[in-house]
Amino acid sequence: MKIKKGFVIREICGETLACPEGASLVDFSMMIRLNETSAFLWKEFEGKEFTEETLADALCERYTVEREVALSDVKALVAQLKEIGIIE
């Protein structure tokens, strides 16, 4: 799976946001607020194919966290992103 094209990561009012700006995206009103780990993952995997496994791998490399915890966090994040329709 991949993140849909057209998002720009911006630092706004001290937070990291994914802003929909590309022509291919239809709903421009929604910005996505990213916490530290989701911001890290987004920037790592922007434009690339990933799986829940590869995301968890990246988290474990960067942070001191148990693999099961990383994987369950990743599954939750991916589920959220799928729900708002930005994963293809």
């Binding site: 706004i12 009012c13 001290g14 937070e15 700006e21 022509a23 421009f28 910005m31 607020r33």
Partner: peptide, 16 residues
């Protein structure tokens, strides 16, 4: 913060 930003951005031409 972001609430203020959201109010502002909807009043500005977004030249995406």
């Amino acid at each position: 913060g972001l609430d203020a930003y959201s109010a502002l951005i909807s009043s500005v031409s977004s030249v995406r």
